[in-house]
């Protein structure tokens, strides 16, 4: 995919030809297959797709923690000017994970240990990292000391309160147990924990899916405010195109481990509409509240089995504008207009 040269100093994260495969007894599942994209400083990139399209897998790859039996089979992840793929696990833990890139996992709010108070849970993250973090990224607390040490309670508390305030929670949350908090509050706690070590990129995997609409809107507002205030870049993973329209500056659509289309919010949701047939039909299938429709559109068929992916374009058997070429050759992702990338033979001039 050399044609799509994306290198640029405005980018905080560049992913080049990333491959993440799962080795299973029946063969190789190419969950993320040759994916190239970038993330600019201070923007939100949306990752959309149906379940099994590789969006969460991409997220875990960026954290350099593919869940076994997955492994990174190739490609580059250039985070803040440094390729993190060849780094050793100890190095990643020390300098990268949670320090430069952190993640709000799907359903993380339901995984808070029930027997710990929020304060204890949050201190743990902080102590673990600040205990061995040193050098350039060391916080003001450990900077003055030569040897790394555990933070004392008062220092940890100060940081925790600061970030709890950022996410709109008060100090007394620290003494509470997870079961005493509502879903929205737990999600805020999890977001605060991802912010702790001042990372530059935060990957949010379905942060609003399990929440009610009103709370969902509150969390979306919170993420927007944090982005402004802390100058963060977000990767927002969801299966819902409607949510993505509200949060993402640019949207990236994935299908069967491949990127189908990347476009700005305006290019995807605007008057002109998306270019890739998959995006177009997915958008048609998204119900809109204020529009009366007699018949909702849908895409017949199911996503392909990634153990035995189809030849050619992965979407060709469900596509309504298939050509002969689509069945044999897979299209590359190319830039069709400014910031708009599409992988479809139909969209070539």
């Amino acid at each position: 995919m050399e044609k799509t040269k994306m290198t640029d100093e405005r980018n905080i994260l560049e992913v080049e030809n990333l491959k993440l495969y799962y080795k299973v007894s029946d063969g190789l599942v190419k969950a993320v297959d040759d994916v190239t994209f970038f993330l600019r400083k201070g923007e939100t990139l949306g990752l959309v797709g149906e379940s099994g399209c590789g969006k969460t897998t991409t997220g875990t790859a960026l954290m350099h923690m593919p869940s076994p039996p997955g492994y990174i089979a190739g490609g580059k992840i250039i985070l803040d000017g440094e390729d993190i793929v060849p780094l050793k696990e100890t190095e990643i833990r020390k300098r990268i994970r949670w320090e430069k890139i952190s993640m709000v996992f799907q359903g993380a709010m339901n995984c808070l240990t029930p027997v710990y108070t929020i304060g204890k849970l949050m201190t743990e993250t902080l102590q673990e990292h600040r205990a061995f973090s040193q050098g350039e990224k060391a916080s003001e607390f450990s900077k003055s000391r030569k040897t790394p040490r555990k933070m004392n309670k008062e220092e940890a508390r100060k940081i925790m309160v600061k970030y709890l305030n950022y996410v709109g929670l008060s100090e007394d949350i620290l003494r509470r147990y997870p079961h005493e908090l509502s879903g929205g509050m737990k999600q805020r706690v999890v977001i605060a924990m991802a912010l702790f070590l001042e990372p530059k990129v935060i990957v949010c995997d379905e942060p609003t899916t399990a929440l009610d609409v009103v709370v969902q809107a509150q969390i979306i507002n919170l993420l927007k405010e944090l982005k402004e205030k802390l100058d963060l870049a977000f990767i927002f993973i969801t299966h819902d195109l409607a949510t993505e329209a509200e949060v993402s500056d640019r949207v990236q659509i994935m299908y069967a481990g491949r990127i189908m289309e990347i476009g700005t919010n305006q290019q995807i949701y605007g008057e002109q509409g998306p270019m890739h047939p998959y995006t177009r039909r997915l958008l048609e299938a998204t119900p809109r509240l204020h529009e009366e429709v007699e018949e909702l559109a849908f895409i017949p068929g199911t996503p392909p089995d990634l153990l035995r992916p189809p030849e050619g374009c992965k979407f060709h058997d469900r596509c309504d504008v298939t050509m002969e070429k689509c069945k044999t050759e897979e299209p590359d992702l190319i830039e069709v207009e400014d910031d708009h990338y599409v992988a479809c033979w139909r969209c070539r001039k």
Partner: peptide, 22 residues
Amino acid sequence: TAVCEPIAGKVNRIKEVPIKGE
């Protein structure tokens, strides 16, 4: 008002949610 809709141009706006809390 809280329901998200797939329409362009809403990304830079903070949505007014008229009710507070849960």
